[in-house]
């Protein structure tokens, strides 16, 4: 059942390369029954509607790291925008038409001397309005526990070995305060148009567990 879509080339894998989680045709779990019950009670009581739930899902599905990449690319291309982004990342992102919600969004800039990485030790706070839902590892016990304790070892697991003379700053997010990393612009890309720059910006480079792609 989950594997019969012709557009998927790798059996059991999604187009984004992730394995499918148990699909809708598996046995109804206690917590799934609770989700259905809670949702239906809210609808029956007029607190929400099926359409409103679907609209929320559609809105979240439409958010992806491409939104964040567009913001980063503009900051690289436009020094005035970069200044506004570092001053107030929420307002600067709203300028580009992104819905940031009521939370504070702070952009932290990577430089040759400083590398930033974000984590949420409490839970899973993440700049979801710009990047979409967080990857599973961001929510894992291992990432949340160790990133504040031995960040260099964690980054090393992501294939990012920082020189010892680079200062590493770890930012612990909260529900009201989210961070996004402004990676350093790759050398050799000065004057590039924003769409070409955006293609170099990876999700992990905006979390700080990776670097932008090198120009091809």
């Amino acid at each position: 059942m989950p594997h019969d879509h012709p557009e998927h080339h790798h059996e059991g894998m999604s187009p984004s390369g992730h394995p499918y989680r148990a699909d809708d045709d598996t046995a109804l779990s206690y917590w799934q029954a609770m989700e259905i019950a809670v949702r239906e009670l809210l609808i029956e009581k007029g607190e929400t509607s099926a359409e409103a739930v679907q609209r929320q899902i559609d809105a979240m599905d439409s958010r992806s790291p491409a939104n964040g990449a567009a913001v980063i690319a503009r900051a690289w291309a436009d020094p005035a925008f970069k200044a506004r982004l570092l001053d107030n990342a929420g307002d600067a992102s709203r300028e580009m038409g992104f819905d940031i919600g009521p939370m504070h969004l702070i952009a932290v800039e990577n430089t040759p001397a400083v590398h930033n990485v974000i984590v949420c030790t409490l839970c899973s706070c993440y700049p979801r309005n710009l990047l979409g839902l967080p990857p599973d590892w961001y929510k894992s016990r291992a990432y949340r526990s160790r990133t504040v304790r031995e960040p260099r070892a964690v980054l090393s697991e992501f294939g990012l070995d920082l020189p010892d003379d680079v200062t590493l700053r770890v930012h612990d997010s909260t529900a009201d305060m989210r961070y996004i990393v402004l990676p350093a612009q790759p050398p050799g890309t000065d004057g590039w148009p924003e769409d070409r720059l955006a293609a170099l910006v990876t999700r992990d480079s905006m979390i700080g567990t990776g670097l932008p792609k090198a120009p091809a």
């Binding site: 984004s16 992730h18 499918y20 030790t121 590892w137 526990s145 160790r146």
Partner: peptide
């Protein structure tokens, strides 16, 4: 949890199931 010992960061991910997206939507609503 921050600062505790833990194993390697698990790199595997998954696509969210419909029921999980609905939980997320109910949280926001």
């Amino acid at each position: 949890m921050g600062g505790q010992d833990a194993g390697p960061v698990p790199q595997a991910g998954h696509d969210f199931a419909l029921w999980e997206k609905r939980v997320d939507a109910l949280m926001i609503l």
